[in-house]
Design a protein around this nucleic acid. Sequence first.
DNA 1: ACTTGGCACTCGGGAACACAGAGTGCTAGA
DNA 2: TCTAGCACTCTGTGTTCCCGAGTGCCAAGT
Lengths: 339, 339
Amino acid sequence: MLDDRKLAVLRAIVEDYVSTNEPVGSKALAERHNLKVSPATVRNDMAALEEEGYITQPHTSAGRVPTDKGYRLFVDRLSQIKPLSGAERRAIETFLAGAVDLDDVVTRTVRLLAQLTRQVAVVQYPTLTRSTVRHVELVQLAERRVMLVLITNTGRVEQRVIELPEVVEDHRIAHLRAVLNSCLDGCGLGNVPDLVADLPERLPAEDRPVVATILSVLLETLVERHDEKIVFAGAANLAGAGFSVGLRDVLEALEEQVVLMRLLGETSTDTPSALTVRIGSENAYTGLVGTSIVATGYGSGDNQLARLGVLGPTRMDYPVTMGAVRAVARYVSQILAAS
Amino acid sequence: MLDDRKLAVLRAIVEDYVSTNEPVGSKALAERHNLKVSPATVRNDMAALEEEGYITQPHTSAGRVPTDKGYRLFVDRLSQIKPLSGAERRAIETFLAGAVDLDDVVTRTVRLLAQLTRQVAVVQYPTLTRSTVRHVELVQLAERRVMLVLITNTGRVEQRVIELPEVVEDHRIAHLRAVLNSCLDGCGLGNVPDLVADLPERLPAEDRPVVATILSVLLETLVERHDEKIVFAGAANLAGAGFSVGLRDVLEALEEQVVLMRLLGETSTDTPSALTVRIGSENAYTGLVGTSIVATGYGSGDNQLARLGVLGPTRMDYPVTMGAVRAVARYVSQILAAS
DNA sequence: ACTTGGCACTCGGGAACACAGAGTGCTAGA
DNA sequence: TCTAGCACTCTGTGTTCCCGAGTGCCAAGT
């Protein structure tokens, strides 16, 4: 049905449309790409492509524009991810290497990605449940108040102020701290509930109320943060790229953590580390018409931590964008693994 | 020069223009506000006001629009801050009270403010230098690595991984921790450099390299974070309020921490806790034409922590916006003082 | 069987134009 | 000092018209 030349025509249409943002006609097409055939032939192919639903025309007597289905075919079969230049790679590396803590890594990553792709970048904070406990700290603030600080191997620090049911002296706090650490050190966060389940029973009765309070806060911290934080950057790029219509809806979606999470996450069912692309209507969220999402998981190989990606107009340069997303994901994984 | 009626006319013009977003004419003005005079009289007053530079007309034979100078007069003398309704106050209180940590307080605050004013809200994280040390913690991660955790009275936690110049055993770490805490506990962050200056000399020579390393990181943490983090929310509101032109510039400014900081901060020279309003060209930043900023300091009375505010079109409802900003600042101060 | 040139057709978008309506400034009178 | 009336000046909108890009189709060529 679709011979090689028709595919070449589709590729040319996508490339031209992406770069000019104007419906592309048969004549210009035959000229710019050396297809070795006449405009009339191109027209025939275009008619076939339109028949199949890969392209469409905004109105009679205008050029053709790729449909979502057309873009899909393009990314799946007609394009190959474009690697970054050496200079870009070096820039990424030095920029990310300068980060001082997890917060900083995430902030830098999202800005970097936004600048690199000239689109809106989205980065999910590393998921807690897949990291492991590196240290638990109890800090006495007052007679009946302690601060619980949980440090993970990804450099994340969670803290909660706890009101205790009774006055507790320093040495008891120190003891509890030691018990907690010996119990949890190095364990995956997902296992924490099981590991602490019988802890109250293994301690003297007098300690139980205090321990119960602390544990309930600890567990709460774990589940609460399961739906993770997401940050974005580069909203200004939206305004730039002829995106005037629906801009408000897109901005709203960006500020809704839950929506954003779904958009990034929905793509991760199969192989989490794969680069996934959702084009236009594929993401099935009203208000995001005409936007595509390129996302991937990041984290060091075996344990995926979270996802990152960019959001931009359906009419985007997929090869370049995909290259940037993939490269940034790799570098940030590397940085996180090292720290 | 400007009698009472002329001022009343100016006020009416501002109010009408804010609510309709259309140049307001003499006829409509005389009708809607009961000025008890005829349109012709109003026209005369308008001519005078225009002469003085308080209003202007986009083109001959259109209504009048307030100038920046006009808004300024309105804010300074013709309006009074509109307090929030009881329901709104209760909503704020319960929403903010649900925050679990400092991060959460800031996030909730900025969203709340954005929703309340239907504009872009900006909140600066509490300035470290004005808070005090509540606890310093050293956590051993490996033979030659420790994590420094600094906990402030505002609930902020700063952390850094430190590579030590030599292998250090547990008990030395514990000792250093005790020394640091006894030295710094309860001190203002601004005083830390002085307090630790002679610390190496007061310790055995063998400890000095390690202490020096730790202190340099500690001091670095303090200065680095002096230019503080800023967050914003409600960008979608920009797209809504007939703000199409220059939107890109505004979004860019919002993502530039430094610019944002200046915009919030410039206003704080005199009395930090006062509500300050910068109207249009007053903020002197290219790209923010047509935007005003309403900001105030927050923090518990004597020690101001940081600033928050909103950014919106010059054509905004100042009394309501100012009321919301002031109220939110008060509540968040209260929350922070309590925690 | 595919490709090509020719040709009539179809719209969208811009230019030219007219026109209604809102708003003004000015002047004369109360 | 205020008011009524009046002529004037704009903008925004609706209408019409035309150009040109681009198409679809057909018949001829390879």
